[in-house]
Write a protein that binds this DNA or RNA. Structure first.
Length: 440
DNA sequence: CTTGATGATTGTTG
DNA sequence: CAACAATCATCAAG
């Protein structure tokens, strides 16, 4: 092991007898006898390396048994402490570096280093279970889970191995130092420091292990469930929730960050439906909710007709579920609303979204309809509405309904900035009755 | 396999 | 930087 030699070098450097010059006398043994004694001992120590092995051995033994030995030892230790080692005290504190923290976080999030049992399944399950859908990805992810738990296992065995090696090495070094402390000035404090150094070394190895584990996980992830290309459809509930929001905010379908988060939570899409935890260190995950709304807006705009049915559906849904009381009130106030042809099975609603819907249509000036309505040449509002209405199976009678404050889609294909996003809190924003009879 | 739907990505724009 | 627009790649139904 490379560490070992390094450590030994350190040890050697620290403890070489070079430091042992000019010794103050321990206690007040002021008599010449003592001074002479100590001087003698020191001399012996200093010259011990010049002697032959046998000779030195014998001398060493003699010194060890010397009555002044304990005192000398502690003094030497003290001196060493003050000279060579004092430098090092400052740069000692481990920086508890953020890199390691990051790795730890990731491993924890990934379920690699986290609570035992279940392997990666724990993490993935946690990620997907909350979804409430879970079912669809279970198969998809089983392979991933297997691999992940494999990684996890390797990680743990390696970790254990390193720990064991670290302990072994530590005790070994400690024994060695203790042994040597009989002949060299090595204080317990020094030994402790040595142990710390060893631990630092090993923890850096551990970090490497963590790093490579992280890399492995990342690779695995990118291979198996990177949703970048292998897209998964959202669950039914998810799209439902998103659609509900979209159509009930049709005049301004731009959810705020909070709203997006809320939606994401509700839909359990989270960030890019991969895994909620991943978002944190996988910096470049745009919100899937944002994607969805982006797609939705553009596609809705491109072909409103196609979404009409859907719009009615969701508008109705929100109306029914959320605002029955208000709806009733509104309905009362509009009992004489222009009767539309067949009252569909669901009857007539006061539709929060539908208001927008028709406003949108009323705001059209031709940029939307080419896709769906074979334009007869007329491009002005009424005729377009007519055309759209026809294409949707709406009678002309609806035109009357569509004459509301024109916000929503503007003529250029963008949504007006909803100055009063009244729809954000209360979906009810217009009193109009719409029939969801889309029989066509 | 074809086709429409759909989530994600990329490049552009204000 | 967010929104848009175009496009890609995959899904899922037929």
């Amino acid at each position: 092991m490379e560490e070992q030699s390094h450590l030994m070098q350190t040890l050697g450097g620290v403890t070489l007898a070079g430091h042992l010059v000019a010794l103050p006398v321990p206690h007040d043994g002021s008599d010449a006898r003592n001074k002479q004694d100590i001087g003698d001992i020191l001399h012996q120590i200093m010259t011990i390396t010049d002697q032959s092995l046998d000779e030195a051995q014998a001398k060493k033994h003699g010194l060890n048994c010397h009555r002044m030995k304990p005192a000398l030892f502690s003094v030497l230790c003290e001196i060493k402490e003050k000279t060579g080692l004092s430098i090092r005290g400052s740069q000692d504190e481990d920086p508890s570096d953020p890199q390691l923290m990051r790795l730890d976080n990731m491993l924890l999030a990934e379920g690699v280093s986290g609570p035992e049992k279940g392997g990666g399944a724990a993490a993935v399950a946690a990620a997907t279970a909350a979804v409430g859908v879970g079912a669809d990805n279970s198969i998809e992810h089983s392979d991933y889970r297997a691999k992940l738990s494999q990684i996890r296992q390797i990680y743990h065995t390696e970790l254990e191995k390193y720990e064991q090696a670290c302990n072994e090495f530590t005790t070994h070094v400690m024994n060695l130092l203790r042994e040597q402390s009989r002949t060299r000035p090595i204080s317990p404090k020094e030994i402790e420091r040595m142990v710390n150094i060893i631990h630092r070394k090993f923890s850096s190895i551990q970090m490497q292990l963590k790093q490579s584990t992280c890399e492995a996980v990342m690779i695995l992830r990118s291979r198996f469930l990177d949703a970048r290309r292998k897209r998964r459809n959202f669950s039914k509930q998810a799209t439902e929730i998103l659609n509900e929001y979209f159509y009930s905010h049709l005049s301004n379908p731009y959810p705020s960050e909070e709203a997006k988060e809320e939606l994401a939570k509700k839909c359990a899409i989270t960030v890019s439906q991969v895994s909620p935890d991943l978002g944190r260190y996988c910096a470049q995950e745009p919100s899937a909710v944002s994607n969805w709304f982006g797609n939705k807006r553009i596609r809705y705009k491109k072909n409103i007709g196609k979404f009409q049915e859907e719009a009615n559906l969701y508008a109705a849904k929100t109306a029914v579920t959320a605002t029955q009381a208000v709806a009733a009130a509104v309905q009362n106030s509009q009992t004489n609303s222009p009767a539309t042809p067949s009252s569909g099975s669901s009857g007539s609603y006061s539709l929060p979204g539908s208001g927008d819907m028709f406003m949108s249509m009323s705001g059209l000036n031709g940029s939307y309809q080419p896709a769906q309505v074979p334009n007869t040449g007329q491009t002005q509002g009424d005729s377009i509405r007519h055309a759209i209405g026809q294409s949707l199976g709406y009678s002309d009678g609806l035109r009357g309904n569509s004459l509301y404050s024109p916000h929503g889609l503007n003529g250029n294909g963008g949504w007006h900035d909803a100055v009063t996003p009244s729809s954000v809190t209360s979906p009810i924003e217009g009193a109009n009755s719409v029939h969801s009879d889309t029989s066509n």
